Amino acid sequence: MKIAIAGGSGLIGTKLTNYFVSKGHSVFILTRDATNKPVKDHVHYIEWLKDGTKPELDLEGIEAFINLAGESIGDGRWTKKRKEAILNSRITSTRTVIDLLSKLKSKPEVLVNASAIGYYGNSLTETFTESSQPIETNFLSTVVQHWEKEAEKASNLGVRVVYCRLGIVLDASEGALPQIVLPYRLYVGGPLGKGSQWVSWVHIDDVVGMFDLAIEQTEIIGPLNVTNPVPIQMNDFGKTVATILNKPHWIPVPAFALKLLLGEMSTLVLDGNKVLPEKAKKYEYSYRFESLSVALNHILK
């Protein structure tokens, strides 16, 4: 299979590339600069989002397209300028993807577009599945709704569209986990805020597996919650980290301190939602890491 990935140099893109290549597929990574990229079998780098580039010339025959492109939401305080960049980067790149697809004589069967469980809003009491509607309008929910609306335009081209609504992705070196783990390694770990907020987590290997599911299972259309079926509250999450590292779980970090430090971005750790992967279960996805303790043991040890 020939698979294109926009935003393929990040955590998820790199893991997906390695996985698909191991399965014998060819991967075409769209990048702003294809010079000095490592030469690998079955991996091709194609320039896009630059004047004069015509990536569609190299993408005829693509069978699946994965769009991960967009500014990271966790790389700095959410100033007005930063929030505009987070939203605009997703809209611009997705519009470019749709334009690119429109120019292909042979369309891919599926567009798998990254998304986020921030779509649903935050709640301590609600449980969300793919059929749930947003319960509030906040920055992340607004971004995700606009992002998905742009991706949906691919369906007008006869392309099946799946939005992979990502939960908190657990990985050893990137994402939220290293930041959560660091205080415990320094013997100052403890509850973040009230500790009752839900963490809808997923191991990076299951992210890869569920993106693959979105490609292979042709009946999946629209939202796909990329989360573990057993979400956990933050206090219990921290206790599990402490147990695995044999460190104390004792010094709470009050919400006001995190808000002073992170500003509006503090919502990423102070708020949460309980999101269940109803479609993954329906299509009998087999989780590699369904237990948080097993997942963290694999990552942290």
Rank of each mutant, 00 (worst) to 15 (best):
R90Q: 09
R90E: 01
S93H: 08
S93M: 05
T94E: 03
T94Y: 10
T94Q: 07
R95F: 08
T96D: 11
T96Y: 14
V97A: 01
I98W: 04
L100C: 09
L100F: 10
L100S: 05
L100Y: 06
L104S: 08
K105Q: 14
K105V: 12
K105C: 06
S106G: 07
S106P: 04
K107H: 08
K107C: 03
L111F: 12
L111N: 01
L111Q: 02
L111V: 11
V112H: 04
N113E: 05
A114K: 00
S115D: 06
S115G: 12
A116D: 03
A116L: 07
G118Q: 03
G118A: 05
Y119F: 15
Y119D: 00
Y120P: 01
Y120T: 05
G121I: 07
G121R: 02
N122F: 15
S123L: 05
S123P: 06
L124R: 15
L124H: 14
T125D: 12
F128R: 02
T129R: 04
T129Q: 02
S131G: 10
S131Y: 12
S132G: 13
S132M: 12
S132D: 04
I135P: 01
E136N: 10
E136C: 06
T137H: 14
T137L: 10
N138I: 09
N138A: 08
F139H: 06
F139G: 02
L140M: 11
L140N: 01
L140W: 02
S141Q: 08
S141F: 09
S141D: 01
T142K: 07
V143F: 03
V144K: 00
Q145P: 03
H146G: 02
H146S: 15
W147V: 03
W147Y: 12
W147M: 06
E148T: 13
K149H: 15
E150S: 11
A151F: 05
A151C: 11
E152Q: 15
E152H: 15
E152C: 10
A154S: 13
A154C: 12
S155M: 12
N156W: 13
G158R: 14
G158H: 13
R160I: 12
V161R: 02
V162T: 10
V162R: 00
V162D: 00
C164N: 09
R165D: 05
R165Y: 10
R165K: 13
L166A: 05
I168Q: 01
I168K: 00
V169T: 06
V169C: 03
V169K: 00
D171T: 11
S173W: 10
S173I: 07
S173Q: 14
E174N: 14
E174D: 11
G175W: 08
G175N: 08
A176P: 14
P178V: 10
Q179Y: 13
Q179L: 13
Q179F: 14
V181S: 00
V181P: 00
L182M: 15
Y184C: 02
R185D: 04
R185A: 09
R185H: 11
R185M: 10
L186V: 13
Y187A: 13
Y187K: 15
G189N: 04
G190E: 06
L192E: 00
L192K: 01
G193N: 04
G193T: 08
G193I: 04
K194I: 10
K194Y: 08
S196F: 09
W198H: 07
S200T: 11
S200K: 02
V202C: 03
I204S: 01
I204M: 04
D205W: 12
D205G: 09
D205K: 15
D206M: 05
V207H: 03
G209Y: 06
G209R: 00
G209V: 01
G209H: 05
M210R: 07
